[in-house]
Amino acid sequence: MARRPLPHRRTPRTRPLVDLGDGRVRLRPAGRPGLSRGAATHRVPAPPRAGRPAARTGLAPASSAGNHLAEAGRPAEGRTIAEEAVEIYRRLSGGNPAVYEPELARTLSNLGNHLADAGRLEEALVNEQEAVRIRSRLSGSNPAVREPELARSLSNLGDHLAQAGRWEEALDTAERAVKIYRRLHNPAHEPHFAAALHIIAKILQREGNLREALRATEEAEELYRKHAEAMPSVLPRLQGVLARRAELVEAIERQEPKPDGTR
């Protein structure tokens, strides 16, 4: 699918990014409280020094500013910043793709999530599909680092496809993510693995394949429970999985006959 240019949608309250030209981007002041001065400037990753991984250079990615704003209840501003972060990393990756393409893929994926949350599913799909293409290519040369990122993008893409009603494509895409996570067999990736399983469960439930959906839900529950104490952030996701499991158990009980032949 060809990438389409994204429209800029700014409101008077939006604080767009300013490219400082030295590897930093800054939120343009808007005369409003909400972000501290220290949180307003973000440095894009600098080219790696000898013996130092690229991921450890520089400060937090610019795209994280958009996530912080969305979490603070300012989704329109977060979405605008995510769009401008994509533009900046696209320009940087044109000059130095080895360093900046991974961050371009990250910002594309973040923007896809922002757009999906706003109901702009077609645009979300365009961005996440581009992220998948970049991460698929990068994973060939550095699978240990890039395959988990590819799996996350595939999981996001599967979710966006499901929201768009493209159920068969959604299932195939989410299953690709699960296949990668199974092969990696790394506890660090298990919360993302659980999220991909829950997407599959949602699709299977919609298709009426309740038993398979229940199995995927139970596996997701087990993975979330392993990390719930150390990572409280997974608790809302665990609650969602538990709610789906209860729905599935009830639906299966309604479908299957009781010993006396009734339902």
Rank of each mutant, 00 (worst) to 15 (best):
Arg4Met: 11
Arg4Ser: 04
Pro5Thr: 03
Pro7Ser: 01
His8Val: 04
Thr11Val: 08
Arg13Leu: 02
Leu27Gly: 03
Pro29Phe: 04
Pro29Ala: 07
Gly31Trp: 04
Arg32Lys: 10
Pro33Gln: 09
Ala40Phe: 03
Thr41Met: 07
Thr41Val: 08
Ala50His: 13
Ala60His: 10
Ala62Glu: 12
Ser63Asn: 10
Ser63Met: 12
Gly66Cys: 12
Pro75Trp: 00
Glu84Pro: 03
Ala85Gly: 09
Val86Asp: 08
Ile88His: 07
Tyr89Pro: 01
Pro97Asn: 04
Ala98Gln: 05
Leu104Ile: 06
Leu104Ala: 02
Thr107His: 04
Gly112Cys: 01
Ala116Leu: 10
Ala118Leu: 14
Ala124Pro: 02
Leu138Tyr: 02
Leu138His: 05
Val145Met: 07
Pro148Met: 05
Trp167Tyr: 15
Lys179Val: 12
Lys179Asp: 14
Leu184Cys: 06
Asn186Gln: 01
His192Val: 00
Ala194Asn: 13
Ala196Glu: 06
Leu197Pro: 11
Ala201Arg: 03
Gln205Pro: 05
Glu207Arg: 14
Gly208His: 00
Ala220Thr: 00
Tyr224His: 10
Pro232Thr: 12
Val241Asn: 10
Leu242Ala: 06
Ala243Trp: 04
Leu248Cys: 12
Val249Asn: 09
Ala251Glu: 08
Arg254Ile: 03
Thr262Lys: 09
Arg263Ser: 10
